[in-house]
Design a protein around this nucleic acid. Structure first.
Lengths: 198, 198
DNA sequence: AAATATATATGCGAAGCAGTACAAAATCAA
DNA sequence: TTGATTTTGTACTGCTTCGCATATATATTT
C-alpha cells in the first residue's frame, strides 16, 4: 500500500549526491540554497521538507560521504591481499577521488570543507570527528591483523601506526585541494607505504 | 618629514592580526566585513583603502601567517640541537598553536580555512600552495643537513621524508580543528618523531 | 465524487552583505 | 590663515540570501 498524497519525484540519495558536489566545490558557507536547489532539481521548499535547513542538508551529505567512504575502505583493506598492496590501493583510490573533478581538485569533502565549519558548528565538528575516527579505526583494524599475521613486526603499535597512515591520507586531501600535482601525491603515498611496511 | 594629510590611526600589522583571528575562527566566507571591521577597529572604507576587498584582506592575513610561521619554523629547525629534539619541538609548538584558542580549537589558518576557498579562488590556492611548499622546504632542508651530519641514514631521501613530516603537521592541523584532544595529537607527534628519526 | 494528505511551484519579505559615494575631520604646506 | 591632502565616519545602493506563506498538482481514502 503506497503512501497517501502526491508521490515524491526525487530520489533522496541522488539529491544528496548532487548537493554533496556543490558543497564539495564551494564549501558550506558559500553554497547557496538556490545553487543546491538547482543542482538537486528540488526546489527550496522540497529541500527543506526532505532534509531540514542548510546545515542539516550539509550534515546529511557528510554522513553519506563518510558511510560510502568507510564501506569502500573496508573493502580495500579486506585483508585478502598483502598489507603493502592494500595500503597502496587505499592511497591510490584516495588520490583518484581527490583529483576526480574536471575543474580544480576538490580533495576530501570532510577535510576540505567540514574543517572550516567545525569550529563554529558543533554538529559539523561531531560528524567530522567521527568520520576521521572511523577511517582511522578501519586502518587500525587492518594493521592489527597484519601484526597477528606477521606481516609487520610483532612489536609495532597498530594504533600509533594507524595514526601515521591516517595522517598521510589527511595530507593527500589537503595537498590535493591546494593544487599539488598527481605525481607529488603519488610520491607521498609510495613513501608512506614503504615506511609503514618495512 | 611626515606624510601630508590626516594621520593613520590604525597599525596595519595589528589590524591584520585581528582580522586573521576572525578568519581563523569562522573562515573566509562566513566572516563579514562588519565583523572584520569591528575586530580591527577600522571601519569598512578604511579597510578597503588599506587592504582592498575582502579577498585581498584575507590573502594578506594568510601571507602574514605564513611568513610568521616560516620564521618560527626556521628558528626551531635551526640545527642547533639534534634532529629528533627539533622535530619534537616543531610539533609541540604546532600543537600549542592549533589548540591556543579559548573556544573550540582552530587548527591551522591555512589548512583549516584556505583549503575551502582554494578550489574556487585561484589567488587563495596559490598562497596555500606556496605556504605548504615553504613549510615543507624548511623541513626538507633540515633533513638534508641531518643526512650530511649523519643524524639519519645516508640512504634516506630528504625530500620524501619531508613529505611525511609535513603530512604529520597537516594531520595535526586537521585533527585539532576536528576536536581531537591534546593527548591524541601528542601521541601522533611522538610516533612521527620516532618513525622519522629511527 | 468528495475529502484528505502529501509534494511541488511561485513568490514575497525581512535581513544581511559588499562595495562605494560623500561629507567631516585632521594634518601639512604655503 | 588658507588651501591641499589624506583618513575617517556615515549612509546609501544594489544585490543575495534565507525562510515562509500561499497556491497548485497528484495521489489515496471514504
Amino acid at each position: 500500500m503506497r503512501k497517501r498524497g502526491r508521490p515524491i519525484e526525487y530520489d533522496a540519495q541522488t539529491a544528496l549526491a548532487a548537493a554533496r558536489d556543490v558543497f564539495w566545490a564551494t564549501g558550506f558557507s558559500a553554497s547557496s540554497l538556490d545553487a543546491l536547489s538547482e543542482a538537486t532539481g528540488m526546489n527550496r521548499p522540497s529541500l527543506a521538507g526532505a532534509f531540514g535547513d542548510k546545515e542539516a542538508l550539509y550534515i546529511a551529505t557528510l554522513e553519506q560521504y563518510r558511510d560510502q567512504g568507510a564501506a569502500a575502505m573496508k573493502e580495500t583493506l579486506s585483508g585478502a591481499r598483502p598489507l603493502a598492496r592494500e595500503l597502496a590501493l587505499l592511497y591510490a583510490s584516495a588520490i583518484d577521488l581527490y583529483l576526480a573533478s574536471k575543474d580544480a581538485a576538490r580533495g576530501c569533502l570532510m577535510i576540505g570543507t567540514a574543517s572550516v565549519e567545525a569550529v563554529s558548528r558543533p554538529a559539523v565538528r561531531n560528524v567530522l570527528s567521527q568520520g576521521l575516527a572511523e577511517f582511522n579505526a578501519i586502518i587500525e583494524e587492518r594493521l592489527r591483523k597484519a601484526v597477528r599475521d606477521g606481516e609487520i613486526g610483532k612489536d609495532t603499535d597498530p594504533a600509533a601506526l594507524a595514526q601515521i597512515a591516517s595522517a598521510v591520507l589527511h595530507s593527500l586531501a589537503v595537498r590535493a585541494r591546494a593544487g599539488d600535482p598527481r605525481k607529488s601525491l603519488e610520491r607521498l603515498a609510495r613513501t608512506a607505504v614503504g615506511l609503514i611496511c618495512p
